[in-house]
Design a protein around this nucleic acid. Structure first.
Lengths: 275, 275
DNA sequence: CTCCGGTGATACCTCTGGGGTATGGGCGGG
DNA sequence: CCCGCCCATACCCCAGAGGTATCACCGGAG
């Protein structure tokens, strides 16, 4: 199976429409139809149910969509990592903006002190995007937070575990009370995080893309946030953090693709483990 | 990057020789040379150092070889799993021959009793091959044994942990003594297991491919074996198992590709977790 | 030093098959 | 019932993958 065929299939499966998929791929619709037919012959299975209104995935098609996305990411990763190796670029570390800031700073300092340290390119992103970056080779290593981020398919090492706290504007009624419970904040307008496809769930609450944005909204009195304790690091005094005693603990882990074997990555992980 | 290019590159990188790689690929050498040049232009990096005696990998080439193999496995997996879904085939479970036999039997029985059970195709193989089968889609789920098997990149769930024992022919001098220590068997001719590439390390000791073979050799008095305790299950009385008190414990885990989401697999894992 | 064998690269040809345009067939909605 | 939307088919073109013949280069044997 060629990656071209797989890319074509993924486009059609996602658009559920040959015309739109062809446009997205920059080709005409008829060759796309033919390519999918050829792919179906090759796989030996019908992948799409065609109707006059569009297409639907068969069971086999759904499997090929899921597995094919992973395969395309792996191919992209191979190309990107080879190119970056040639360019002499260092490691790309990805972390959620505003999360584990202190830990990240310590890690970067400690690693930079190593004799064999290479340049570390830090990339910040919103939640749920790190896994994708790690999978398609745009990043080499990530800081993830269990149980929020999926660590499936990566090698990981636990770094720290901490409780969560409620972050409130200084004047908020709950700010004066002692430690809170989940029930205390159940009625508050919690922010909405994007789903994996980039859209937001319906409902009240402001839309946020990362913790840094959220911090600003809290400071503006437009939202309250439930975040790991360490998010209080570097906070101005217009936001207060109140421990949330019955929230599940959050573990920060360092994660990397399972088959990675580079010296630089191994050093970074070793340094992280010693923090 | 097309899978064809990647396959060509992996062949040349493995053979370290354009002529042999071309033969293996079933094409002539000149188009292979051109394809690699085109790949190097596309990646933007020299991947091979050509000499008049053959080729050597550059650093970028080594990265592309490692990542490319994983990517090709992922592409193969996508195709195989889609085909098997269409054919209505059930799950393929792979386990090492002779290992965890009782656990495997219980798992298969318990799963078969589920209302929504599908057919489970059991495939037995030698050590170190399960990961490959899981990665390239020839299997859906595996029983692995930590710390012997690499579980990196898979989702896993621990099933049982057990100690190891020495398996001896009934008349062996050590068979009469009580529990043994590692030092007691250090001088014995332990069997040689194949390396990941299929070859065997140099040295004394018989070559074995799986635990079932090994059991027969022990019974014939040609070898002694260090295996998890559960390997004593179903053993004839011409072989005795003596506990090895200071051997590292072995954990049997059930493992599956991280992105697998099939109902049948989820059921099987759930059943395994309840054993 | 020369020559030979083996290695990858180049030149040039062939023809497969991927992509384009034009058009057909079939179904749902107004 | 007809129009519009959507995917499939027919047919053409040419980029590019693959083949053969040959070259250029280097190491080693004599």
């Amino acid at each position: 199976m060629e990656t071209r065929e797989l890319r074509y299939f993924v486009a059609v499966a996602e658009e559920r429409h040959f015309g739109r998929a062809a446009e997205r791929l920059g080709i005409a619709q008829p060759p796309l139809s033919r390519a999918i037919q050829q792919l179906e012959r090759r796989v030996g299975a019908r992948l799409l149910d065609r109707t006059t209104r569009g297409v639907a995935l068969t069971e086999a098609g759904a499997v090929l969509l899921a597995e094919g996305r992973a395969a395309l990411d792996a191919v992209d990763a191979a190309e990107r990592r080879a190119r970056r190796t040639h360019d002499g670029a260092g490691l790309v570390l990805v972390s959620k903006a505003g999360a584990s800031e202190e830990l990240l700073a310590k890690l970067l300092d400690a690693y930079a002190a190593e004799a064999s340290a290479v340049e570390v390119d830090v990339q910040l992103c919103g939640p749920g995007q790190q896994e994708r970056l790690l999978r398609d080779g745009r990043a080499d290593v990530a800081l993830l937070h269990r149980p929020f981020d999926a660590t499936a398919g990566f090698d990981t090492e636990d770094l720290t575990t901490e409780g969560q706290a409620v972050f409130l504007p200084a004047g908020h009624p709950l700010a004066a009370r002692g430690p809170l419970r989940m029930a205390d904040v159940a009625q508050e307008p919690l922010p909405r995080w994007p789903l994996p496809d980039g859209s937001y769930p319906d409902g009240p609450g402001p839309r946020v893309r990362d913790t840094a944005q959220l911090r600003q909204l809290v400071s503006l009195g437009r939202a309250i946030a439930v975040l790991p304790e360490s998010a209080r690091h570097g906070l101005a005094d217009d936001v207060v953090a109140v421990p949330l005693v019955d929230a599940p603990p959050v573990t920060t882990v360092i994660a990397w693709p399972a088959h990675s074997r580079s010296r630089a990555l191994a050093d970074l992980v070793r340094v992280a483990g010693r923090l």
